[in-house]
């Protein structure tokens, strides 16, 4: 078969080029939840470490001016861990359900094909 050796793009190709140039592209990434799952995991880890450090420092010591700093640190750590856990769970579930939905659509199409006697 002979190659189409056009030096000038055809009108359709020029139109296509113009349409592609006018497209709005958001630069979306694959697996959009991944970043949030990692962030949630890190928040959980940092939160637990902060709470643990605060607890170890307060443990067995008398109440003093500095204990309130550790109390604040512990509370902040626990909050961070709770928010991180929530983010981690929500984003993990979102990813899971996205793939579950894709699978469901695929299986429905397969079933429709079987009913129509394609396979």
């Amino acid at each position: 078969m002979s190659t189409t050796e056009a030096t000038e793009p055809s009108p359709r190709l020029q139109e296509f080029q113009a349409e592609v140039d006018s497209m709005k592209i958001d630069g979306g990434k694959a697996n959009p939840e991944r970043r949030w799952v990692i962030l949630g995991g890190l928040m959980m880890l940092v939160g637990v470490i902060l709470a643990l450090v605060a607890w170890l420092n307060i443990q067995g010591s008398k109440v003093g001016a500095w204990t309130s700093d550790f109390q604040a640190m512990g509370t902040f750590g626990l909050t961070l861990a709770v928010v991180g856990s929530a983010l981690f769970i929500v984003m993990s579930l979102r990813r899971y359900f996205r793939f579950w939905l894709i699978r469901l659509i695929f299986e429905q199409r397969e079933a429709a094909d079987r009913i129509a006697g394609k396979n």
């Binding site: 080029q17 592609v20 140039d21 497209m23 592209i25 958001d26 979306g28």
Partner: peptide, 9 residues
């Protein structure tokens, strides 16, 4: 596509 980076379109 037609010379334009269209990642994410």
């Amino acid at each position: 596509i037609s010379g334009r980076d269209v990642n994410g379109v």
